[in-house]
Design a protein around this nucleic acid. Sequence first.
DNA 1: AGTGGACCTTTGTCTCAGGG
DNA 2: CCCTGAGACAAAGGTCCACT
Length: 321
Amino acid sequence: MRAKERQLAALQGELRKLKVTDYDTLNGIQHYSAQLEVLQEALKDDFVPKHTQFQLISPRSFFVDRLFHVRSRDVERAAHLEFPLDAGAPDGPRYVGPELRQSDGLVFMALLNLCRDYRVGKTACFDVASMTTWLWGSYNGQQRQRLKQTIRRLQRATIEFPGFTVQLVQRFEHPQRGEWSVALDKDIVQLFRPKTQVWLELPVRKRLPEGLSTWLYGYVRSQSRLIPWPIDDLRARCGSEANDKTFREMLGKALRALSMEGIIDIGWSLKGNKVHWRKPSQPAAPQRESRSPASDEPAQGSFLLTDESVGSVLNSERRHP
DNA sequence: AGTGGACCTTTGTCTCAGGG
DNA sequence: CCCTGAGACAAAGGTCCACT
């Protein structure tokens, strides 16, 4: 899109230089400029921000607070919760729905990825076995059940804005046989405004132990720089109910995992009641510091990569054009 | 016969508390 | 800092069965 824009601008400049007054040519260029504008509007209003098969995207507010809780599995999920999405903005959008955890976050981002090339609101189909294999590395009856329950939970999860409410998943069809399908709420793009998306690398997200480590991964990626931060605040943000000592130990383990992946600098420490950390000065080898695919260059990888396993999940057809 | 889906068992993982 | 153990799932693999 950006490239086309540049080409058109260059062409217009060229024609001006040549003092071309051929109306057909000029009209033609104007026509394409107008079309480009329409397409740009559509991209902004009707599609989730562009990302590749190997990236997970989410609104920033989903990572800096307790939307996707870190909780022990033996604590029963709360059936109904309501809280402001951003604790710092009590009058902003509110979350209303069942308690979500880190595993729900992964499925939500996978569905955003699945639907990324379709206009929001359109139904995207997927092969169940391929999806669970993509998410969790295997497929069986339990995984199938787990995926169904997770998507249904996301369906009951809503974000309330003044004037309208968005479901994290709007429509979910799960026939006994054959492909399942989901449709995202057409207003879900509102969550990404103004340009507040955060990208995670799928392979890194999958390598990290699910829980506090994955929550911190999202949190770190949502911060432009890391400053010494109170441990208590992190505990409150991620929703953990562990006591001081236990949480400190969990945090230490999680930070170790993050530094091993090159997400934070290895020189982190827990001093007093604060965590001292910073982003790696040199992007470490395993963690290619991903550039935003929405930046000026077109996201080359997104349609060209042909990884078989990923491809088989993501070749969903739009069923209701 | 082949396949998809459900169900079962064993082993592994994660949170959390408590003790050295 | 390390270890242990409880509790509840999950992961992984196998088996069974109904349906095509």
